[in-house]
């Protein structure tokens, strides 16, 4: 079950989205995330859905795979929906039952909120699915390079990120292994209240941390052995250069942003879903 977490992983495939410059993907993803927050109406969400749908189908990442990435946020999602559903007041009352009241406004907010959250995760996971972590790191490094002037260690941070991403599946596998080993020794992770369960995690976390440190040590040694010496004097195997397709991607995203903005701003009527 723990290995089902697909968020943040790279899905190798040949697609126009995969071939885009990582910088384009980072900037456009950020713009897409912003677009989810500057509007809150049905037409806006329809446009966002179309945009996201097109990107997903172009990326050739199976939808099932992307949906699997939503698993970790299910609880957060349900919490948000429930809170919004019962606590937002406004419009006609749809259901009134004891102390619970569901209003039109509440239903609307909670549905939009859920969609927003789901799109948020899907949008950003499309970026990680289609960009190899090294690409992502290179992109970030180049985008943030100006920060070098104020002594931000951009290269180091980028390198750390890419290594972290590389080790996610390895550590997950390890967690799985340790869990099974502890279960075989009679550990119980399934029963008890939340505090007892949290306490039961200790025999997993301690060995996991120990092994993570050991791995970090090994990896640092392996990197040094391969002449890694910080960002200076390094060349790139895949240097980033904007191509025609990248310019088009920017153009399309900017057009999308303008449309979304216009819809959020100038569509005066409230369109109800129901």
């Amino acid at each position: 079950m723990i290995r089902d977490i697909t968020i943040g992983q790279y899905y190798p495939a040949e697609s126009p989205i995969h071939r885009l410059d990582p910088r384009v993907k980072i900037v456009c993803t950020l713009l897409f995330l912003v677009s989810l927050f500057i509007q809150n109406s049905l037409p806006g969400y329809v446009i966002a859905t179309i945009f996201l749908g097109c990107v997903i189908s172009m990326s050739r990442v199976p939808v099932k795979y992307i949906v699997k990435g939503l698993k970790p946020i299910v609880i957060l999602l349900m919490f948000t929906v429930v809170m919004n559903l019962f606590l937002t007041r406004g419009g006609d009352t749809l259901v009134h039952f004891w102390i619970f009241t569901i209003t039109e406004e509440g239903l609307r907010t909670s549905v939009f909120m859920a969609v927003r959250l789901i799109y948020l995760v899907m949008g950003s996971s499309i970026m990680t699915f289609t960009t190899s972590p090294n690409g992502l790191t290179d992109g970030l490094e180049k985008l943030l390079r100006p920060l070098n002037k104020i002594n931000v260690p951009v290269h180091e941070v980028a390198m750390m990120m890419s290594i972290a991403l590389r080790f996610i599946p390895i550590l997950l596998e390890e967690t799985d292994k340790i869990m099974k080993a502890q279960i075989a020794r009679g550990a119980d992770f399934e029963s008890g209240n939340i505090i007892q369960r949290a306490k039961a995690m200790t025999p997993i976390l301690v060995p996991l941390f120990v092994s993570a440190f050991r791995r970090a040590n090994d990896l640092a040694m392996a990197m040094e052995a391969r002449c890694y010496n910080g960002g200076e004097g390094r060349t790139k195997m895949k240097p980033l250069r904007y191509k025609a397709q990248d310019r088009w991607a920017y153009v399309i995203t900017v057009i999308y942003m303008i449309v979304i903005f216009a819809v959020g701003r100038f569509v005066p009527f409230k369109l109800w879903i129901f």
């Binding site: 090994d218 392996a222 002449c227 060349t235």
Partner: peptide, 18 residues
């Protein structure tokens, strides 16, 4: 613990890049 890249070819390229 000695593979740095997330794609085989990128890992092989790590040394020459350095």
């Amino acid at each position: 613990n000695q593979i740095i890249g997330t794609v085989v070819e990128e890992d092989v390229g790590f040394g020459p890049e350095n």
